[in-house]
Amino acid sequence: MSAVPDPLGHPPLERYLTLPGFTPTVLTMILGYRLRALREAAEISAKDASEVLDCSEAKISRLERGESPLREGDIEVMLRMYGAQHELETVCELARRSKEAGWWERYGSAIIPKWFDKFVGLQEGSKVIRTFEVQLVPGLLQTAEYAYAVAQGGFPATAEEIRAKVELRLRRQDLLERPDAPHLWAVLDWPVLQRPVGGREVMRGQIQHLITMSRRPNIKIQVLPPGCVAIGSPVTLLRFEEYGLPDVVYLEHPTGANYLDKPEETGRYRLMLDDLAVMALSPAQTRKELRRIARELE
């Protein structure tokens, strides 16, 4: 395998054969962006590539955005077209690894629907997670008791499904314990702390957990002060800092989610999160407020 430099100066793909921590979801994105870089370096349009592959331009777009799995036959045709046959072995091996199931997929679609499956895979491979919540404590910061109360209040589910949802949520939190843990920056709207999810005892434990987590070096928690007007829906921005991958903005609604990765879209949300952080109490002030709320719940 020849480690030929990427046309845009990205590290050679070979490094992703040995580096840990890259989920199938992120590997698919990396491969897609590599293929786009090679196509553009070869000065081949998406339309011309689609004609050679006998597919639609939309398929080329999905492949290059990491939204569709890569087949070895398509990989061979594309690399030959782009004059990059020397990468065939590496790309095919990474494509095989990108099809491996993530640990979370064993829970099945009843517990983790396809639209959320992608988010978990992206979150697992991210370097920075910025989130703004208006209804609930972010899932990565929830206690077991709080998560159980949230699961009970969602769509109708059996006791076993509720147990599995809570287990999944708690296991997702393991990524914050990794040596290469991402940085989590959470801004909470004021009503999140006033909503007694699960009752006073559960909420007191949740508040105390936020205080504890806020002291970790890779976690920053801020709360908007009372009366501060903010947008009415949650948003999460994921940053990868690998291979030139774009930021991804995740917008969830009751029956699905939207994923945005165009710079003009994600840039607006990044500025919005910056503004919210400026309006919010500082991390130290937030801890002080959390301690006050915990005392009130005693």
Rank of each mutant, 00 (worst) to 15 (best):
P191A: 07
E177H: 09
P179E: 15
Q142P: 04
A157D: 12
R178E: 13
R96S: 07
E145N: 07
G125V: 04
K114W: 08
V166G: 02
M78Q: 09
A110W: 05
R97I: 06
E87G: 02
S61G: 02
Q152I: 08
M78T: 06
E161G: 10
G108P: 09
Y107Q: 08
P196S: 10
P138L: 05
G73H: 08
T143Q: 12
E72D: 11
V166C: 04
S98N: 08
G139N: 05
A186P: 00
D74H: 14
G66E: 05
R71Y: 15
S126R: 05
L122C: 04
P69W: 04
A186S: 12
A110E: 15
L175G: 05
W104M: 03
S98G: 15
G83S: 05
E160A: 14
A84N: 07
R80N: 13
E105G: 02
I75N: 01
R97L: 15
Y148N: 06
E133T: 10
W103N: 01
Y148T: 13
G125P: 00
I111R: 13
E100L: 14
F132W: 03
L140K: 03
L94T: 04
L175Y: 06
Y146I: 00
L170T: 07
A144K: 14
R65L: 13
L88P: 02
E76P: 01
E145V: 08
E167K: 10
T143Y: 00
V120Y: 12
R178P: 01
E72R: 12
E57T: 09
E160Y: 11
Q135Y: 08
D117E: 04
G108Y: 08
V77P: 01
V137E: 09
D189R: 05
G153Y: 12
D117L: 13
V91G: 11
